[in-house]
């Protein structure tokens, strides 16, 4: 395995890039982790994302249903357990993105409120 940094006094000129800290711009190498950074976005409260990866077992609501805080809306299997997702706001279910048996990853969009 070689690193880009190996080229400091070698024949290949490393590709330096601009990098700003405290309003000063430096020439330096960027790391893959830095380049893959995602721009932060404010979470949309209308969208319910899965907190764990798992498999949907039972969906207790339908599109257009009115739900109240604390009402169970989904049962899913994860980590060898049945987990219940409850509504954390009052509202109307606008869209359901999973059906029983679906596998989903963490932070997967499962419900959307109106």
């Amino acid at each position: 395995m070689t690193m880009q940094t190996k080229n400091s006094n070698g024949d290949e000129k490393p590709k330096f890039q601009s990098f700003t800290v405290d309003e000063t711009t430096y020439q330096t190498l960027l790391t893959p982790a830095f380049e893959k950074r995602k721009v932060w976005q404010k979470p949309d409260e209308k969208k319910i994302l899965s907190s764990l990866p798992g498999t949907a077992v039972k969906i207790n609501v339908h599109k257009g249903d009115k739900v109240k805080v604390g009402q169970p809306i989904l049962v899913f299997e994860s980590m060898k357990m049945m987990n219940t997702v409850t509504a954390y706001q009052d509202g109307v279910i606008k869209e359901i993105f999973i059906k029983p048996g679906d596998k989903f990853s963490k932070n997967y969009l499962i419900f959307e409120f109106e």
Binding site: T5, P14, V21, Y26, T28, L29, L30, T31
Partner: peptide, 13 residues
């Protein structure tokens, strides 16, 4: 610190 990479900043890792 390594100025060659990310100008040598400190971060979590």
């Amino acid at each position: 610190n390594q100025p060659l990479v990310l100008a040598g900043v400190l971060d979590c890792d």
